[in-house]
Design a protein around this nucleic acid. Structure first.
Lengths: 225, 225
DNA sequence: CCAAAAGTGTTCCGTCTACACCCATGG
DNA sequence: CCATGGGTGTAGACGGAACACTTTTGG
């Protein structure tokens, strides 16, 4: 088109995914050992390069799909990371995204194939390049989002108990919550619907199973935890 | 280094600046008419390309310096914007930044030279490409930051009256604030220091001038407005 | 029968909100 | 002397935090 652009330099652009899951009452992320140079063998986020024919969001979704086989996952951008030397090999700018998935929707076989595993956010090792910074910022944004929008349900099965939901919020915020106050707040959200079903796995007595009704939420969105 | 990277495509990377100022009791941003193709003549944010030898943050600071001659300005990243067709000429991914500056620190001559002007955030025209989206997200992040951290002082002179500060917050949040409640909250922040100086320009009686003491703030950072 | 998790209300305290009048000064 | 913006306190409403006991049932 115009020659205007060609005074300037092009740069490799990648995406990196912070994939959050909730298991064993802990908030976890997926990391693996890098299988390529530079940094082969180091712990790392899963990522990929952005193609010229796709948006950055599309690249992030494609990358997540490669890893998990999952589509329509809740993902949000964390930001662009662009220190000159962040990648020891070449100048690569990376855009980080975080995703919220239900651990049980993720086939263990695929995990093994890609050599990734769940690690508690309280126990994250040193990661390749600036990936620890990405995780830190992702957690902050994710916590903020969890407080103000009903996105936590992406981390749970469709049916969940109130105790599960409470443990999730405790894991995300890193502090215990009073059971009665928590349940009082939940009662005010009519889009968190009690079903007739009962979970007998985690307690003798049995706990009522709840479900998040997105349509009801959209009628009058209000959320605060 | 490795041939690994070269299976992939490089992309033009730019930065765009949402420069906030406060004047005439209004929150404003700097925009100008594009002086280049594509989009020549359209209203646009001021931007520039990222070089291979500088971080994205550095590129944003350099771009801001080009426009305003100002250094050490408060800037924060808004995010990466990467639709395939966002730039009609070439594939260009852009990282948006917002900046907070004191309008009076910005020489009017430089404004004219670059053909930019202050426009109220309530009155922003259609901008080039996805720049309106950038502005929208920047405002949201900036509002959020203004509520939880003492960054508003970057938009004011070193010495300011409480009425000025209140008008600033009213402009940012788009709603009036009760004067007595506002001043009560300010009193609790010992790092907003009353000086012996008096502003006689805006009132017959004269208003006490205050100053933000960053060192005092850093001792025990707490802020909420 | 007992261990283990589910379920349920009330009180208190601190925070936020609403609200109106006097003051000082320049012109 | 009056118009203009500066400056000040209190009471009532509301929301968040603390807190303990009963229920159910599988083993």
């Amino acid at each position: 088109m115009t020659s205007y652009y060609f005074e300037h330099q092009k740069i490799f652009l990648s995406v990196d995914c912070i994939i959050f899951g909730f298991d064993d009452n802990k908030l976890k992320i997926l990391i693996g050992r890098r299988q390529m140079d530079p940094g082969r063998g180091e712990w790392s986020l899963y990522g990929g390069f952005v193609r010229n024919t796709e948006s950055i969001d599309d690249a992030a979704n494609r990358t997540l799909f490669q890893l998990t086989g999952m589509r329509n996952v809740y993902m949000r951008q964390v930001g662009a990371f662009g220190s000159v030397d962040r990648d020891p090999g070449e100048r690569v700018v990376s855009v980080a995204y975080y995703a919220l998935i239900n651990v049980k929707d993720y086939d263990e076989k695929l995990m093994l194939e890609h050599g990734v595993e769940w690690v508690s956010v309280d126990d994250i090792p040193h990661l390749f390049s600036d990936h620890n910074d990405m995780v830190k910022k992702a957690r902050k944004l994710m916590q903020q989002k969890m407080r103000t929008e009903p996105v936590g349900f992406n981390l749970l099965p469709d049916l969940f108990t109130l105790t599960q939901l409470q443990r999730l919020y405790e894991a995300v915020n890193g502090e215990e919550i009073d059971k009665r106050n928590f349940r009082k707040r939940i009662k005010d959200m009519e889009y968190i619907e009690k079903t007739e079903l009962v979970d007998k796995i985690n307690s003798r007595r049995g706990a009522a199973l709840y479900r998040f009704n997105k349509k009801v939420y959209n009628v009058e969105p209000h959320f605060k935890l």
